[in-house]
Amino acid sequence: MDTDVQSFAVANLRRRPVVVETAGFVVGFDPGTTSPYINYATPLPGAEPTAADVATLVAAFRDRGLKPRLEFAPDAAPAVEPALREAGFTREAVHEYLLCTPATLAVPQPGPGRPIVEIPSTDEDFTAIDEALAEAFAGEFPASAEGAARLRRTHETGGAVRFVRSPDGRCAGGAMTSAPAVGTSELAGVGTRPDFRGQGVAAAVTAALAEAMFAGGAASVWLEYSGEGSRRVYERVGFRPHGTRLYVSLADPA
């Protein structure tokens, strides 16, 4: 399954507004932001890059004033990390990912007091979701017009966005999934504003998004988790451990 997840990563980056393909790598850029979490590269499954290939990859970032950074499933391209390390890349993190299928999905049953999941439709909805996720992640991804636009673009290009409305009419929490590729889809950005945590918001939007992808024909949905608390939430709705993803980057030259 690592190969499927890595093939998805390649296909998903090819959807970015600007795509650069170098020997063994795909780089996705979004001119609307300089964030290294949005502008990054991933290797083709089975890639065996040379030092020259890595240098070409680095130049694609440096020419744009961006930090060279990659995200990938290492088991799908075992030769890549050693080649990157030789060029000075260092590990940022290794994250386990969880996978859900139609057979394992457990959608929370509706009832009194249970969160009601909605589909955003207005600019105000997308802005409120972006602001709620910024608050949920403590400003790691600041709210912006570009962030709201990316959520709408995801919603309108085969992915999905779901949220739970807060009593003030805005957003208590939400998440999104990318459009499926090679039979799978990534669920990301699950966040709940602090005042609404512990009320089932994350579980409700996660299950609703997985359900939406399966209804559209995806065979699986995968995500990464940030801690044991979130892992338990995802496991309750049917996600199971399946592999790891590696994050590496190259520091600015001295």
Rank of each mutant, 00 (worst) to 15 (best):
Glu86Ala: 15
Ala143Ser: 15
Pro112Phe: 07
Glu131Leu: 15
Arg69Ala: 05
Asp130Glu: 14
Arg62Trp: 11
Arg62Glu: 15
Asp53Ser: 10
Gly139Leu: 13
Glu81Phe: 00
Ala77Trp: 00
Ala77Asn: 00
Ala59Lys: 10
Phe141Asn: 14
Ala83Cys: 03
Ala134Ser: 12
Asp125Val: 11
Pro82Thr: 03
Thr122Ser: 15
Ser144Phe: 09
Ser144Glu: 07
Pro115Tyr: 12
Asp63Pro: 01
Gly111Met: 09
Thr104Asp: 08
Ala136Pro: 03
Thr50Phe: 02
Arg64Cys: 03
Ala103Cys: 05
Ala41Leu: 01
Glu118Phe: 06
Asp125His: 14
Gln109Asn: 03
Pro45Val: 04
Ala47Ser: 01
Ala138Pro: 04
Leu105Tyr: 06
Glu71Ser: 10
Ala55Arg: 10
Pro45Ile: 04
Ala136Trp: 11
Arg152Lys: 14
Ile116Gly: 06
Ala77Glu: 00
Arg64Ala: 09
Asp125Cys: 08
Thr104Leu: 07
Tyr97Phe: 15
Thr127Tyr: 11
Arg62His: 13
Ala93Tyr: 09
Ala77Thr: 01
Pro142Gly: 11
Asp75Gln: 14
Gly88Cys: 05
Pro112Thr: 13
Ser144Trp: 08
Gly88Tyr: 05
Asp53Trp: 01
Glu135His: 08
Phe72Trp: 08
Pro115His: 04
Ile38Leu: 15
Ala132Asp: 04
Glu92Phe: 13
Glu86Gln: 13
Phe61Tyr: 05
